[in-house]
Design a protein around this nucleic acid. Structure first.
Lengths: 350, 350
DNA sequence: TACGCCGATGACAGCGCTGACATGCCATGT
DNA sequence: ACATGGCATGTCAGCGCTGTCATCGGCGTA
């Protein structure tokens, strides 16, 4: 079975193997009728190229690699993966996926023992893997190009594609202001998440345009929240982020001047805030509008569904792959992608 | 760069290329000191095998393929994918992932234009792709083995790995009974989902053991629900499953004898029921215990988190890969995997 | 001592494809 | 009529590895 080779096709079409190769690879310098004859032979024989042989002959693998922190762990990576696969296919490439730091293995070891063998021609590196300098060194040493998808701007060793977190957060501020909200609450993310300060500052900047300053709003800082709830002590246990959001909500609702609009670092926190609000009989969105970030599953699973900010994941993935396959290796741009405010049921006019 | 070949290693170790090959492939018939010498040479040169060349020489691709309905679309596939990748790596294989039926393309075409080129040695086929006979025919024609992961038992052309949905649902019934629940509600899934009748019947069987019959409980059938809510008419629009659950909850709460325990086809529906209950001031889990199925994100994102049934996804994936790589090609068993009841905050004693 | 056997190692071809280069053919210009 | 150039096509080696078979040396047995 499946022993059809170039030569078989060549014999049938009465041309040389090389000509068949040309047809298969879309070389223009083949006369139309020859091409047709070859294509007919290919079809009738059911020929399909042997990628291993091609790869050996050309020393190109036809593979793009992607590191994911925890496959299936989030909506973001799922979509990134899906879109990267599609983009690769359009170029005739395939995507090889590897899980970063499995079993607390260092990323660079995960690379060495996994993807490296496949000799990917390029790598898509989402955060936080993309900030692992050790890994970047290893990739550089192998001459493997990479595109980083990260809000962390410090590293400038390759193309970086970045969603415009700040602009998204600013849009949230404008949205909340425009629907008549005036008392604002904010729940931040962990400082080590590079997107956290960007989202916070974007939000603050948006409100500053309306004359609202940080000291006029209720802010819950994630590190404090974690300390207060004792999650910090509970060694190893990853805090339930929804529950964290509920605690944040409780803290905000206990303030003297209860906010009528709350923006949280991400959707899970927002869902927790909404949950707490409903337990206290606070109407969402009437008495309180809540906005998250990421347009993750939580945004849709929450009731009412969350107003949130969506990153253009498909576009990011496609662009990353395009750059790896067709781009200039010297390119070191940082590409900022616009994000989109998605208004749903959790925010509405007073 | 990276031009280190078997021959380079062979020269350094003063042996033939073939002996190096033996060492690399773990052939036992190499004397210990030769082996050591070769390994030292490999290490000092930083040699790594060229998989394309190996693949060409052995005519084995070292690839397992997997079809996923919508990559990143669900927790289940995310985890399946992750575990399959891990299992493949343990065997020195890699996993190639393809999205089924992209852009309403037929599965078989997605296969032909994508994975087929890679010549996977085996395929993991989750539901519902695994019930596409056209695809199975194509795989058979190519001589590609496959393992189906599906509750649909009609097709018997390969190994099938099946989570024991019925046993899980029965365990739910027993759990609810044991915490003192006596008035039961049930929300089914769509009949075309093969797992739906299995879960329903398992639940009914579990209650039957306690002397409760179907006509003594409140049942919401999904097709009716979809009709009632008008989703059926809203062409194209996929119903928001949470919202569907809220409607199901409303129907159940309006009955004369309000259930104090509700089991739903999946977690999203359960989350909707919980949401509705909270809006009506019904205490969960005190006045009403709710149990879902799948242990999806919704189960954790819900508040209180859902009691649910978890499929042993890791085990299923590992077993599928093992069977493809080391198993008997003639094998046509159907393997039933035990599931696990996960008790969380949404169910508790009266 | 002679023989056969076995474990360790090597020689060599070839997997299917493509790159570099060679060839052959026809149209064009002089 | 002949040189020239350009296009279509062919020849051939070799990418890095492994399967097959051959070889070699030492050991046990008769």
């Amino acid at each position: 079975m499946q022993a059809v080779t170039l030569d078989d096709v060549a014999v049938l079409a009465a041309v040389s193997a090389k000509t068949v190769s040309r047809v298969v690879n879309g070389d223009a310098r083949v006369s139309p009728d020859t091409r047709q004859r070859v294509q007919a032979a290919i079809a009738s024989l059911g020929y399909r190229p042997n990628l291993a042989a091609r790869s050996l002959a050309t020393s190109r693998s036809g593979l793009i690699g992607m590191f994911a922190p925890l496959i299936g762990g989030s909506h973001f990576f799922g979509e990134l993966m899906r879109e990267a696969i599609r983009a690769c296919r359009q170029h005739g490439y395939h995507l090889a996926i590897e899980e970063a730091g499995v079993h607390s293995m260092r990323n660079v070891d995960a690379y060495r023992e996994g993807l490296r063998k496949l000799r990917c021609e390029g790598m898509v590196l989402p955060a936080p893997v993309c900030d692992d300098l050790e890994l970047l060194d290893a990739l550089d040493a192998d001459g493997v190009r990479y595109v980083r998808i990260s809000p962390a701007l410090e590293v400038a060793r390759s193309v970086a594609i970045v969603a415009d977190h700040a602009a998204g957060a600013r849009a949230v501020a404008q949205h909340l202001w425009s629907i008549g909200r005036r008392r604002f609450g904010l729940v931040t993310g962990m400082p080590h998440q590079a997107s956290s300060p960007l989202r916070r500052d974007g939000f603050l900047a948006g409100l500053a345009e309306q004359g609202i300053t940080a000291d006029q709003m209720a802010i819950v800082a994630m590190p404090d929240l974690i300390r207060d709830t004792g999650w910090g002590a509970a060694g190893g246990g990853v805090p339930n982020i929804i529950d964290l959001g509920r605690h944040a909500g409780a803290q905000l609702f206990d303030r003297d001047c209860r906010p009528d609009a709350i923006f949280t670092y991400n959707d899970e926190l927002a869902a927790g805030v909404v949950s707490q609000a409903r337990d206290r009989g606070i109407d969402v969105p009437g008495q309180l509008s809540v906005v998250g970030f990421d347009d993750s599953d939580a945004a849709r699973l929450c009731w009412p569904p969350l107003t949130t900010v969506r990153q253009p994941i498909a576009r990011i993935a496609a662009q990353a792959v395009d750059i790896l396959i067709t781009g200039d290796p010297q390119d070191q741009r940082t590409i900022l992608c616009p994000v989109e405010l998605v208004v749903r049921g959790s925010s509405a006019a007073v």
